[in-house]
Amino acid sequence: MIIVHVEPENQTLIFRSLNTVLMLQKRLGLRVTDALVIRGSELLTPDIQIQDGDEIHIRKVTSTG
């Protein structure tokens, strides 16, 4: 199980399985540069494998005013 927190909406999503960061971004309808993908204190590039038990933060970067 993978827990994904989406900011700034403060949504929490749970995925049973995800292969890579790119797959997660596609599932969320995001392009590579639409959001930071954070695991712990590291930023993840699209090719990184997501592991079962990971907790990921998606921080969208577009300022809305």
Partner: peptide, 24 residues
């Protein structure tokens, strides 16, 4: 780009105000 400034803020530990303006 916005993505690049967001990366900079993150790796430099800048605590930002990210909530959208309630009027925007």
């Amino acid at each position: 780009t916005e993505f690049e400034t967001a990366c900079y803020a993150f790796i430099n530990g800048i605590s930002i105000h990210s909530a959208p303006c309630p009027y925007s």
